[in-house]
Amino acid sequence: MPATTFLETPQGRRLAYHRNDGQGPWIVFLGGLKSDMEGTKALHLEAWARARGHAYLRFDYSGHGESSGTFEEGCIGDWHEDALAAVAALTEGPVVPVGSSMGGWQALLMAREIPERIGGMVTVAAAPDFTEDGYWATFTEAEKAQLDREGFVEKHSDYMEPYVISKRMIEDGRTQLVLRDPLRLPFPVRCLQGTADTAVSTGTALRLLDHAECPDMRLTLVKDADHRFSDGPCLGLIEAAIAEVLG
């Protein structure tokens, strides 16, 4: 496998990435919270894109994987800046973001920031606004008091070790919300969601489908698929969704 390459962003962060040239639009994989670019979906889609001659980019947000920084210091806005910097420096022309979990929120933020660059979008268990609707909304009064007093709380995850959620992540998340104001997605969008996902509910997927203004948006619910969405049949569905968006 080729050695990891690094990008220095305008904000002074050092992002690890792998890119493969090919025909556009560029497929850009946007990973989830505390995930990295060595995950099953990221690597599988890289091989799939290479076999078909498609341009492909995967990278680690700051505080993730091989990139600089620590997770606990990061927030949605930082990772949004990272994604924009990676797309600006490492791709040309239209891009098709493929956003997994928090990466789905990042894909929507990218579409709001640089709509002229987006040729289509695929989301997998997209988690828009989760810092407010998932974390803050379920914090107990004791957790809110701890967040204010200590600056962080730990939240259990069914898929990895507990997340350390910072006060900065919550406060910054409120400046990045996409489900409160009009969300225009003037390109094909395909959303995939497992019904056995304990991190992101089907209700979130339906809320996004109902909220977005999009002429060609489809949601596929997959019975018994969990948040990882990375077994063989699920990976096949992601491939098919990307191929459909690429048209």
Rank of each mutant, 00 (worst) to 15 (best):
Glu143Asn: 05
Glu143Thr: 02
Lys144Pro: 01
Lys144Gly: 09
Ala145Phe: 12
Leu147Ala: 14
Leu147Gln: 11
Leu147Pro: 10
Asp148Thr: 10
Arg149Asp: 15
Glu150Ser: 13
Glu150Asp: 15
Glu150Val: 13
Gly151Trp: 14
Gly151Lys: 12
Phe152Glu: 10
Phe152Asn: 03
Phe152Pro: 01
Val153Gln: 10
Glu154Ser: 02
Glu154Trp: 02
Glu154Thr: 04
Lys155Gly: 00
His156Thr: 13
His156Gly: 01
Ser157Ala: 06
Ser157Trp: 02
Ser157Arg: 08
Ser157Cys: 08
Asp158Val: 01
Asp158Lys: 03
Tyr159Cys: 01
Tyr159Leu: 02
Met160Trp: 10
Glu161Gln: 10
Glu161Trp: 03
Glu161Ala: 13
Pro162Val: 06
Pro162Trp: 13
Tyr163Ile: 09
Tyr163Gln: 07
Val164Leu: 12
Val164Met: 07
Ile165Phe: 08
Ile165Cys: 08
Ser166Ala: 06
Ser166Phe: 02
Ser166Met: 05
Ser166Glu: 13
Ser166His: 05
Lys167Ser: 15
Arg168Val: 10
Met169Ala: 15
Met169Phe: 15
Met169Lys: 04
Ile170Cys: 09
Ile170Asp: 11
Ile170Gln: 12
Glu171Lys: 08
Glu171Met: 07
Asp172Gln: 08
Asp172His: 03
Gly173Gln: 07
Gly173Ser: 08
Gly173Thr: 09
Arg174Asp: 05
Arg174Leu: 09
Thr175Gln: 14
Gln176Asp: 08
Gln176Leu: 06
Leu177Gln: 12
Val178Met: 06
Leu179Trp: 10
Arg180His: 13
Asp181Met: 01
Asp181Arg: 07
Asp181Ile: 00
Asp181Tyr: 07
Pro182Lys: 11
Pro182Ala: 11
Arg184Cys: 01
Arg184Glu: 06
Leu185Lys: 06
Leu185Tyr: 05
Leu185Asn: 05
Leu185Ala: 06
Pro186Thr: 02
Pro186Cys: 06
Phe187Leu: 00
Phe187His: 04
Pro188Thr: 07
Pro188Cys: 04
Val189Ile: 12
Arg190Asp: 11
Arg190Ala: 12
Arg190Met: 12
Cys191Glu: 13
Leu192Gln: 04
Gln193Thr: 06
Gly194Leu: 01
Gly194Asp: 02
Ala196Gln: 05
Ala196Leu: 03
Ala199Ile: 00
Ala199Pro: 00
Ala199Met: 05
Ala199Trp: 00
Ala199Ser: 12
Ser201Glu: 03
Ser201Gly: 13
Thr202Asn: 04
Thr202His: 03
Gly203Asn: 13
Gly203Ile: 00
Gly203Lys: 04
Thr204Val: 15
Thr204Ala: 11
Leu206Cys: 02
Leu206Thr: 07
Leu206Gln: 15
Arg207Val: 00
Arg207Glu: 14
Arg207Cys: 00
Arg207Ala: 13
Arg207Gln: 13
Arg207Tyr: 10
Leu208Lys: 03
Leu208His: 02
Asp210Gly: 03
His211Arg: 05
Ala212Met: 06
Glu213Trp: 05
Cys214Ser: 15
Pro215Met: 11
Pro215Ala: 09
